[in-house]
Design a protein around this nucleic acid. Structure first.
Length: 290
DNA sequence: CTCCAGGGAGCCT
DNA sequence: AGGCTCCATGGA
């Protein structure tokens, strides 16, 4: 097992992982890193050539601790947790662009250490297909069911952890199996998307419009889900997913941006907050949920 | 018991 | 284009 630390600044691991951006991490309260200390940590298993187990915690404001069967995961972990960004300039930019009576500044203060995660594309896509009309805790359960039944296991300290399956593996599932995992009416969407994932042209490197259109080719992917995938799975921080929470936040705090059409609300927020409007969305989402 | 959840598909006009 | 209705399921 390998261990390491990452110096951090203005970062909250719990706010970032548990703000409904990613469903690939599992929280545990228990013994830390072969020491007697009790604490909170999160685990995740990524998969490239082999399962890569990652355990991470934040005991101090200025440092992350990690443990992994892989070596040198520091940079990878920083990328996953959205640490490779100058968060100070993001915040000041958003505050400058806000012409209300300090709503954005208050929202930022409320979730000071929040970042935008960077999940792998396929797990991110399936997670957010599962997310429609569903509470965050239950999305997490659905994702864990998928991992446990179709992912690759890795044994760590006599405990099994699972990767999220790749598209080929998940496309071997049946609709009834996925319904048994409590996906409900989303089961056929997940199955069809898994079957088509490798054959659909997924070059998302162009402009936002065409990237969004390509993602919407998948069954179960509309504007909101596509925008979540762009923001949390491809690091497009200029995209604003508008859900019921953001809709009500805009109606309350930015009434002149509010219309009875979530796509237009999204464009209004993107026009207002520019290249970091995805962060504006994240801060507002936390603010109205707290 | 009813209502609703980080929406979207399928249908109607 | 815009406006319905239905979709599973568990927690309030």
């Amino acid at each position: 097992m390998n261990y390491g630390t990452i110096p951090v600044e203005d970062f909250s691991l719990s706010d970032t992982i548990e703000s409904g951006q990613t469903f690939l991490w599992n929280r545990t309260d228990g013994q830390m890193f072969n020491s007697e200390t009790q604490g909170t940590y999160w685990t995740c298993v990524t998969y490239e050539n082999a399962p890569c187990y990652i355990k991470v915690s934040q005991n101090k404001d200025t440092e992350l601790q990690w443990e992994s069967n892989c070596e040198n995961i520091g940079e990878k972990l920083k990328r996953m947790l959205g640490l490779n960004i100058n968060i100070g300039s993001v915040k000041s930019s958003l505050i400058d662009l806000d012409d209300t009576t300090g709503v954005m500044e208050e929202a930022i203060d409320n979730a000071d250490g929040l970042r935008i995660v960077n999940d792998p594309l396929f797990p991110c896509l399936i997670s957010f297909i599962c997310s429609t009309q569903m509470r965050i805790t239950r999305i997490h359960k659905m994702v864990n069911n998928i991992k446990k039944n179709y992912g690759n296991p890795i044994n760590i300290n006599e405990c099994k952890h699972y990767t999220f399956p790749d598209s080929r593996k998940l496309s071997n599932a049946t609709e009834n199996e996925l319904r048994d995992m409590k996906l409900g009416y989303r089961a056929p969407y997940v199955l069809e998307t898994s079957e088509n994932f490798d054959s659909i042209d997924l070059d998302l490197s162009g402009d936002v419009e065409s990237a969004r259109t390509r993602l919407k080719q998948f069954k179960g992917v509309g504007t909101k889900v596509a925008d979540c995938v762009l923001l949390y799975g491809t690091n497009r921080t200029d995209v604003v997913p508008v859900d019921t929470w953001i809709e009500s936040a805009v109606e309350k705090y930015y009434p002149d941006l509010y219309v009875n059409d979530n796509e237009k609300i999204a464009r209004n927020l993107e026009d207002k907050f520019g290249e970091y409007s995805g962060f504006a969305q994240a801060y507002l989402f936390q603010y109205v949920r707290d």
